[in-house]
Nucleic acid binder design. Structure first.
Length: 429
RNA sequence: UCCUUGAUAGCUCAGCGGUAGAGCAUCCGGCUGUUAACCGGAGGGUCGUAGGUUCGAAUCCUACUCGAGGAGCCA
């Protein structure tokens, strides 16, 4: 009977056929241990010379790392096995014998592994991370779909910058210039007025010469947008959203999180109480007390975010940033127009910003003023229409998928959070 | 773009002015409970590229190329 390793516990004491690959092999002369994987899991097959056909044992001696094969054997409970199960092998049928597989069970450098990313994703750790990525996406969707949000897909090809701050990837749109999207935000505002509560989920592109553990050239973002939503309500949604994700992962991905040796205690702590909320003013004071040479009006750098979040055990909202260092569309605080009604959510354990959100300007005259200040032209005239026809207070946020995965997994670089990362100067494989 | 750092065997690295090394991988042999298995043996390198200094350069100097860590910018 054909069986998958992921559900092998259903076949104890039964004879099964497994189709998969050999990810390592150890031999002791008269006993061979086959480390098998089939994509759904890992299991060890044991071949004993005195108990199998000599031809089967000889065939096993020729098997190499990452050869594909079909194995027939009996499933056993086995206390010595990390997974709790083992396979007593009766027969082996090689499908394709591999020679000189590049990735060995020993250490490799980052550059070598990235050059072999198409093979690297077969390894247990990378496989676990990709499973976690898929489950985080599922958790994000289940929260939004279960709370009245409608998915709306903004365009990838856009006429110009949405935020105007970072470098865009340029391309041609027939005879006109076009750019790959760096945010669907403006389109999502139009969608929120049409559908109430919406979210987008898709890739975004930034042609930044950024070379840090937190940057990808191509990354995925979830951008919810809500009509009749204030800054405070926006933060409430973000907190419930993030807690839902963490809770879902602890319930559904413990095996994968354990595989990558993630300490679960900090994640459990995320659920233990409300997220602290401090103002930009207070953040500056705290940083100055810690000895940082940072003045009011300056934006945080990575070391600032790290030191700040290390003072808290749960994700931290920093709200009401100076308007001058934030995007043009953010709503000023009516009591204090030099700061905006928006917040960044900084992940704990030094991970820093994973969400940027705000209430959006709903007043036509103010938005027109911002357009003039930022040199925004006719290609976004439609955006002003949203304030001409039934303008309401509305808010939204964007959460970076890869940064969220890096935090949940406890990784030191986002390059392992996406199957085929696009990094500075790397578009292969 | 800037700062720091690196490039030596298929991989990970040592060697830092005087005959090119180790572990793993590969091949051969041994081993009935291995978990990055272990033990013995073998093959394998124009020391990133181009100049320069020197009797002599993997080693010192210069430029370039590529990588890594960080900054800035951001999610």
């Amino acid at each position: 009977m054909k069986a998958w390793i992921g559900t092998i516990g259903e076949y104890v004491d039964e004879e099964v056929t497994i189709e998969g690959w050999l990810w390592n092999v150890r031999s002791s002369g008269k006993i061979i241990f086959l480390q098998l994987r089939d994509g759904t899991g890992f299991i060890q097959g044991v071949v004993v010379k005195s108990e199998v056909d000599p031809a089967v044992f000889a065939a096993c001696q020729n098997l190499t790392q990452e050869s594909s094969l079909k194995v027939v054997g009996k499933v056993r409970r086995e206390e010595r096995s990390p997974s709790g199960y083992e396979l007593t092998v009766y027969a082996v049928e090689p499908i394709h014998i591999t020679s000189d597989y590049p990735i060995t069970p020993k250490e490799h450098g980052v550059d070598f592994l990235m050059d072999h990313r198409h093979l690297w994703i077969r390894s247990p750790r990378q496989r676990a991370i990709l499973k976690i990525r898929a489950e985080i996406i599922r958790a994000m969707r289940s929260y939004l779909d279960g709370n009245g949000f409608t998915q709306v897909d903004p365009p990838i090809l856009t006429p110009s910058s949405c935020e105007g701050t970072t470098n865009l990837f340029h391309t041609k749109y027939f005879d006109e210039d076009a750019y790959l999207t760096q945010s669907g935000q403006l389109y999502m505002e139009a969608a929120a007025i049409a559908l109430g509560k919406v979210y987008s989920f898709g890739p975004t592109f930034r042609a930044e010469k950024s070379k840090t553990r937190r940057h990808l050239i191509e990354f995925w973002m979830i951008e919810p947008e809500m009509a009749f939503c204030t800054h405070q309500e926006n933060m409430d949604v973000q907190e419930a959203f993030v807690k839902h994700i963490v809770s879902h992962m602890l319930d559904n991905c413990e095996l994968e999180l354990t595989t990558i040796e993630r300490d679960l205690a900090p994640l459990q702590e995320v659920l233990a109480g409300p997220f602290p909320r401090i103002s930009y003013d207070e953040a500056i004071e705290r940083l100055q007390k810690m000895g940082h040479d940072l003045k009011w009006g300056e934006d945080f750098g990575a070391p600032h975010e790290t030191d700040l979040t290390n003072q808290f055990s749960r994700p931290l909202f920093v709200e009401k940033f100076p308007a001058a260092i934030k995007a043009f569309y953010m709503q000023p605080d009516p009591n204090r127009p030099d700061v905006i009604l928006g917040a960044d959510l900084l992940a704990p354990e030094g991970y820093g910003e994973i969400i940027g959100g705000s209430e959006r300007i709903h007043d036509l005259a103010l938005l027109q003023k911002r357009f003039a200040e930022h040199g925004l032209g006719r290609e976004y005239e439609w955006y002003l229409d949203l304030r001409r026809y039934g303008s309401v207070r509305h808010s939204g946020f964007g959460i970076g998928l890869e940064r969220t995965i890096a935090w949940i997994c406890g990784l030191d670089h986002v390059r392992e959070t996406i199957p085929f990362p696009r990094l500075l100067n790397r578009i292969y494989p």
